[in-house]
């Protein structure tokens, strides 16, 4: 085994995922470059990858989030941008984690909507999410009630 020397120790990398009707990933990238000040920015198909010192990265992210706060999402990433170990070009296929993001991308519109609707809402007024439907059969009493409720 060979010795391993990390490339960017002491940095953080974060994904910025843009799921917006009003701003495109390109718009967000332009804004990010404007305020980058040494933070590394890489565009990709769903937004940006931002790398640098934690406070700098957070500063850039705070700026770009302002563009559409409820439609821009942020997630930590373990690897620096363009790392060959995670890159589709070198692996042949997407790293497995990509499909997880792909899945959650489909849910983001509900989250955006939820963030907007709950912004000035008394949270206690919102019913708690229903727990997963139990895989139980309909009990006989309920069934009877349903039958009785039917018009003849």
């Amino acid at each position: 085994m060979t010795e391993y020397k990390p490339a960017y120790p002491g940095t953080v990398t974060r994904y910025v995922v843009v799921e917006s009707y009003t701003v495109t990933p390109a718009d967000v990238a332009i804004r990010a470059y404007e305020v980058a000040k040494g933070v590394m920015i890489k565009e990709n198909c769903f937004g940006l990858i931002v790398m640098g010192k934690e406070e700098d990265v957070d500063r850039v992210i705070a700026e770009v989030r302002k563009m559409d706060p409820t439609h821009i999402f942020v997630k930590d990433r373990g690897f620096p941008p363009g790392d060959a170990r995670r890159c589709r070009a070198t692996l042949g296929g997407a790293r497995p984690g990509f499909h997880g993001i792909e899945f959650e991308m489909g849910i983001l519109p509900y989250i955006s909507n939820g963030l907007e609707k709950t912004e000035n809402l008394d949270l206690s007024a919102v019913p708690a999410p229903a727990p997963a439907a139990p895989e139980r059969r309909l009990d006989v009493y309920t069934l009877k009630k349903m039958i009785d409720a039917q018009e003849p």
């Binding site: 692996l91 296929g93 997407a94 499909h99």
Partner: peptide, 25 residues
């Protein structure tokens, strides 16, 4: 190398194959 497919392929083909394992990988 790792064959490149999309999420929709995974969902469709996993169902089609018919072996109901739990582990996503």
């Amino acid at each position: 190398f790792f064959p490149d497919i999309a999420l929709k392929d995974i969902v469709r083909d996993f169902d089609k194959f018919g072996l109901e394992v739990r582990s996503p990988d």
